[in-house]
């Protein structure tokens, strides 16, 4: 630790030597990931209604995965959690692992509500289509 640091909240050794190269590299990585996400988003938009349910879902999962990659870069480099001591990293990351279970459980629950609603609690077959029905990409407002 450098001598001019007195705060007890500092849990890492500041890296005086490193330049701004790493910061800009992270910026370009984040931008590139965002552009890829946008590309996938437009892919979903243009191919709307032509894609199978599984392909739509996997594209969305891929976008979610890229978002997690962005989160990793922001937290690890910009917030320099990656440079902290190991115990510090663990006290932050381990509680957040609860989200894995939260997301799985709650989305499962939401899907279960939908099924119950569509079948009146299982008393009739589900006749709703799995795909969402959307208007074609033509903008309605244009007709105003």
């Amino acid at each position: 630790m450098s001598s001019n640091v007195s705060s007890p909240e500092i849990t890492h050794a500041p890296e005086h030597a490193s330049g701004t190269g790493r910061i800009w590299k992270t910026f370009w990585v984040l931008s590139a990931l965002t552009v890829v996400e946008l590309g996938l988003g437009y892919f979903l938009y243009w191919k709307h209604g032509e894609l199978s349910y599984a392909l739509t879902l996997s594209t969305k999962l891929l976008i979610a995965f890229l978002t997690l990659a962005k989160a990793y870069y922001i937290v690890s480099i910009f917030m320099h959690l990656g440079d902290e001591i190991r115990n510090m990293i663990m006290t932050i990351i381990v509680p957040l692992l609860l989200f894995v279970w939260f997301i799985a459980a709650f989305l499962w629950d939401g899907n279960s509500w939908k099924t119950l609603r569509n079948t009146d609690g299982g008393s009739r077959p589900d006749q709703t289509e799995q795909h969402q029905q959307h208007a074609p990409a033509v903008e309605k407002d244009a007709k105003k």
Binding site: F99, F102, I103, F106, L107, G110, W113, R117, Q132
Partner: peptide, 27 residues
């Protein structure tokens, strides 16, 4: 704060999963 936002977003996801039709963001 992450848990607060996480709870909001998960609750949003739950409701979105529970209805047959949700607003199309591209629209």
């Amino acid at each position: 704060d992450a848990f607060t936002f996480g709870a909001f977003l998960i609750s949003y996801g739950t409701i979105r999963f529970s209805v047959n039709h949700w607003a199309d963001p591209n629209e």
